[in-house]
């Protein structure tokens, strides 16, 4: 169980995470939805150890979360210039020598001998996802994993993420397009003003649009008056 208790974080005077509480079951895929600037990436950076919370705690299996348990895929993954796909994955094998690059690449279909600089955005995302899997961590965080992916890559990600969760990994992924998460997630939560606004279980996903629309719906009279 991943437990976030009374978590606070801000940049100077701007409060981004505001006494956030959240409990995530292990072995499941948890989606996080929020507007741009709602604090999704900041929260992920705290979990991955890149940022230190100003107060509150993050517990994983009832112990303070050690960054060694967690790996994160950024919205725009970083690659060293002039590195090949194989070299990139071999870096991850330093910590997880059992990771079978050839076997996994039969799923991802990447030209691993090519330089990553020559990859398309979708290919770079697939490589970053392979790296995330290769890290072998118990908690995997994917920030906007569907951005820039073609439909084939989206299908691959949609199949692999639940399979990883079935192996006991706790997976946390974000999107600002809620519909992209419904097919892979066991729960979907929304973050608003630095707090978890609500959480829906899989059987409640039908209410997602209704709940989001109730807050963001443009009144009919305004729509009609638009030229």
């Amino acid at each position: 169980m991943l437990k976030l208790e009374d978590l606070c974080f801000g940049y100077e005077k701007a409060v981004v995470i505001n006494h956030l509480k959240w409990a995530l079951e292990p072995g499941k895929v948890h989606g996080l939805v929020g507007m741009n600037g709602a604090g999704k990436t900041t929260l992920f950076n705290i979990l991955s150890g890149m940022l230190v919370p100003q107060s509150g705690s993050v517990l994983f299996c009832d112990q303070p979360l050690n960054p060694d348990k967690c790996a994160m895929m950024e919205t725009t993954p970083f690659f060293y210039p002039m590195i090949s796909g194989k070299e990139y994955l071999e870096i991850f094998r330093l910590k997880n020598p059992d990771f079978n690059i050839v076997a996994w690449n039969s799923v991802f279909h990447l030209p691993l001998r090519e330089l990553v600089d020559n990859y398309s955005t979708g290919m770079q995302k697939r490589l970053a996802l392979m790296g995330l899997i290769a890290s072998g961590r118990a908690l995997l965080i994917l920030d906007e994993p569907f951005n820039g992916l073609d439909f084939e890559a989206v299908r691959i990600v949609q199949q692999i993420i639940p399979a990883l969760a079935a192996r006991g990994k706790t997976i946390l992924l974000s999107s600002h397009i809620p519909e992209s998460l419904t097919s892979v997630c066991h729960t979907i939560s929304t973050i608003k003003e630095g707090k978890i606004d609500f959480t829906l279980q899989k059987n409640e996903f039908g209410r997602l649009s209704e709940l989001l629309d109730s807050e963001n719906k443009i009144p009919d009279d305004i729509l009609q008056n638009l030229n």
Binding site: S48, G49, M50, P67, D68, C70, A71, M72, E74, F78, Y80, I91, F92, L94, K95, G131, L132, S135, R137
Partner: peptide, 11 residues
């Protein structure tokens, strides 16, 4: 450098 996340993921 921009490899903080990569190196953090590797501890």
């Amino acid at each position: 450098r921009k490899d903080h996340n990569l190196l953090t993921s590797l501890s």
